[in-house]
Amino acid sequence: MNSAVHMGSRLQGRRLRATRRQGGRRRGARLRGFARAAAAAIAAGALALAGTVAGSAPAGAANRQVYVALGDSMASGPLIPDITGPLACGRSTNNYAHVLAARLSVAEFRDVTCSGADSSDMTSPQDLSLAGVDMGQAPPQFDALSADTTLVTLTIGGNDVGLVGIAQDCATLNPFATPCKNTWTAGGVDRIAQRIDAFAPRLATVLAGIHARAPLARVVVTGYGLYIKPGGCWPYQPVLGVDADYLQSSVHRLNTTIAAQAAAHGADYVDVETPSVGHDACQAPSAKWVEGYVPTDLAAPLHPNRRGEANYGRLIGDRVLAG
């Protein structure tokens, strides 16, 4: 072999060895990179597995209470200070829902109660007005429900039946006036009772809708209070005794209907009528849980006052905490 060929051969060998060393370094770098990625993946997998073993929910999530309050003016507390939410909804920071939320120390609280609401306003926007002025709309109350809701309270039915309007029409300062009961029961047909009976399937639909939208929630339904004692107290409350009894018996019929529908559709019922004895509109201002035709406290006529809302919240809270 001549010297030129020999030198070329040596140069080619050096290049080959250098290429092998460079390739080895690249393969080593790739292997080390792969090892680091694999280690990271294994570590991440271990953390994920640990999280799965410990439970997928964040620490304390099992105790997280998400409370949604639904309902009408009995629940919203119109004219009771302080006002929150849409003005026309008459929603008070001292309504029973706020009392209950504070007592339970809930993690999240959504109060969408609104004066004038009926069962249709659970799924449809509610038209709002104040003193005849258009105040826009409130969203459907069911919009506040979600899969993480754990507690729902509901008070509904009074506006479906129209009880407050009927009671206002029954007011009279004439002791010789024809009882309004005669009008509502003419021909032997109790038309208020008919309205209450017609409300029952609507309430069933509302309860089914709550369960569908908040399947993990405990649902607590209230009735309505004792507004006037047996025989009334005319003229302090300007409604004849016979009409006072008729109106309160209609409230009681509504409460019985609400209780039956709650029992049939997986909800708890809280009776606020029985504990209200001695706290009706005929009582002294310091004892009343509801206001009469002319309020003596900051509250709407024929509605619970702050004292009443506080006691309703207490009664509901006792039921919730009792399990």
Rank of each mutant, 00 (worst) to 15 (best):
A260G: 15
D143P: 00
A177W: 13
V251P: 00
T256W: 01
D118F: 08
L154W: 09
H98I: 06
G165Q: 05
L321R: 10
S76I: 11
G266H: 13
G165T: 11
G278E: 04
I192R: 02
A69P: 10
P139E: 00
R14M: 14
K229T: 03
L145K: 01
A244H: 02
G55C: 05
D118C: 01
R10H: 12
V206H: 05
C170T: 12
V133Y: 10
A40W: 15
D297R: 09
S120G: 12
A54N: 13
D143E: 07
S124C: 00
M122L: 12
R253D: 08
P81S: 01
A214H: 09
G232F: 04
L216A: 15
S3W: 14
D72T: 05
G136C: 04
C233P: 02
D127A: 13
G24A: 09
G308F: 05
V270M: 03
D127E: 13
G323D: 10
K288Q: 12
L240V: 09
Q22G: 11
G157S: 08
S73H: 08
Q126H: 09
H211W: 04
R30C: 10
L16V: 12
R103L: 04
R14I: 15
Q65D: 07
V66S: 04
R110M: 00
L163P: 05
